[in-house]
């Protein structure tokens, strides 16, 4: 009887430990977005070039994540990229003339949207659009420009 009990306790402990390990793996090593607000409002912005911005990328302001990109789509009418993102509803006092730029975390890190506060008295709300945007810096274009400028410098 005593032996059966210890087997049962051992098995129970083992399964519990295994389950908590699985739980740890699924919750702590994945996801990436520390943003998980349930109450949000939706804002859109148009960019000439979004670089490699993907949905679920963070939206941050002053370095703090306040939202997440929900979709990145090409608009065939205006020929630019339409990015929709949601912002936590408690940040309801973001001036609507704030500007959005696509930034890169680290030199080769993933891209995110950085919001820079404006000075307007009206605030961003559900369905509003950020008008001032700055495209992603594409490394190839940058190198291209650099090569052109350095070769034209040689000619003079």
């Amino acid at each position: 009887m005593q032996q059966t009990r210890s087997v049962e306790i051992g098995t129970g402990l083992f399964v519990l430990l295994g389950m908590s390990a699985l739980f740890f793996l699924t919750t702590q090593t994945t996801g990436g977005d520390t943003f998980s607000a349930s109450d949000t409002f939706q804002v859109e912005a148009r960019f000439e070039n979004v670089g490699s911005l993907k949905s679920r990328a963070p939206v941050s302001m002053s370095g703090v994540t306040i939202g997440r990109v929900t979709s990145v789509a090409f608009d065939p009418d205006t020929l630019d990229a339409k990015v929709t993102f949601v912002i936590d509803a408690k940040y309801n006092k973001i001036p609507d003339d704030s500007d959005a730029s696509i930034l890169t975390s680290g030199l080769l890190g993933s891209q995110y949207i950085g919001l820079q506060a404006g000075g307007s008295d009206t605030y961003l709300e559900d369905g509003s659009e950020v008008y001032f945007t700055q495209s992603a810096i594409v490394l190839e274009n940058l190198i291209g420009k650099f090569l052109v400028s350095s070769s034209s410098g040689d000619d003079e």
């Binding site: 399964v15 430990l17 295994g18 389950m19 390990a21 699985l22 740890f24």
Partner: peptide
């Protein structure tokens, strides 16, 4: 599977 999860953690 439990052993693998524990090993990985």
């Amino acid at each position: 599977p439990f052993l693998v999860a524990v090993f990985t953690c």
